[in-house]
């Protein structure tokens, strides 16, 4: 039985009896077609590259990529695992900074109308700028080899989706729900705690799923413009310029795997924090 990718998600099944029967958990059979297509695609890739006798610098075989991954796993000029770890650290730092600032701006703009008037247009305008273009500037400001310059690139990318989604989640409550709370003479603080924040949680997790991917993109792309030598972005650039494309592919594969694991961690946390939401989606 093949269990790849998203099949990891249902491992939390049945771990909390309080929400028994509540999960929109899908059976392994549901993932089977996707798994078959995925494995089939890889096999096809292997066969086609062999049959057409393509050169490794055009498209290496999957087996060659795996071999390169294994050969350059922990040491050598292209040590991939330490590179991936370093890049993940940058991305994580950026994710934390971007999420924190995004949440602060979101709460401030919901709490104070003036803050909303000032912050939201600025944030929207900033989001329209091709942010990646700033990577060389960040490198210049915070140092080419300083992980912080990459983390900040990631943070800037993460900020907007988190801020925008959380603002929506906090504001998009039923007007009647606010009136209900008023009829209980609930304070603004209580309304925030018992209505707006729970309402915003699904929006927040949606944003986080996007943000994890964006943080990795931000870190890797910032590394393209220069950085410490053992990071994924540098591995990709340097192996490509050395025409060692099997290593380039191996680095990309490792980056992709990191992104998927990152995403799954958010999905699992979501299941624990708002278990009801999966059911709501499943029944909708």
């Amino acid at each position: 039985m093949t269990t790849i990718g998203p099949a990891i998600a249902p491992t939390s099944r049945g771990s909390r009896p309080a929400v028994r029967g509540l999960r929109g958990t899908r059976s392994l059979a549901w993932y089977l077609p996707a798994a078959i297509v995925f494995v089939g695609g890889i096999v096809l890739w292997e066969v086609v590259v062999g049959a057409l006798n393509l050169q490794a610098f055009v498209l290496p075989k999957p087996t060659a990529i795996l071999a390169a991954l294994q050969a350059n796993w922990a040491e050598g000029r292209f040590a991939l695992l330490p590179s991936a770890t370093a890049t993940l650290q940058e991305a994580l730092t950026g994710l934390v900074i971007g999420t924190t600032v995004g949440l602060l701006v979101a709460f401030a703009s919901v709490r104070w109308v003036t803050a909303r008037g000032i912050l939201l247009p600025l944030a929207v305008a900033a989001n329209a700028v091709p942010i990646i273009a700033f990577a060389p500037l960040l490198n210049n400001w915070f140092g080419l080899v300083n992980p912080l310059s990459k983390a900040l690139m990631a943070a800037i990318l993460v900020f907007f989706p988190v801020m925008a989604n959380v603002v929506r989640g906090l504001v998009d409550v039923e007007p009647a729900a606010v009136e209900l709370m008023r009829s209980y003479a609930a304070s603004d603080w209580t309304i925030l705690r018992k209505l707006r924040v729970p309402n915003a949680l699904p929006y927040f997790f949606t944003a986080m799923k996007v943000a994890t991917t964006l943080s990795l993109i931000g870190a890797i792309v910032a590394e393209y413009f220069g950085g410490a030598s053992t990071v994924l972005g540098r591995m990709i650039v340097q192996s490509a310029s050395a025409l060692k494309f099997d290593i380039t592919w191996a680095a990309i594969l490792l980056g992709a795997a990191t992104g998927i694991v990152f995403y799954l961690v958010v999905a699992v946390v979501e299941r624990f924090v708002i278990p009801w939401h999966a059911t709501l989606r499943a029944e909708a």
Binding site: A176, E179, L180, K194
Partner: peptide, 26 residues
Amino acid sequence: YGMVFQAPVLFDWRTVEDNVKLPLEI
């Protein structure tokens, strides 16, 4: 006042029981 609107205005993230407890918590 106890208010009942045309829409039930229940909180999806709370169980039925916890929805009834909401005013009591407040």
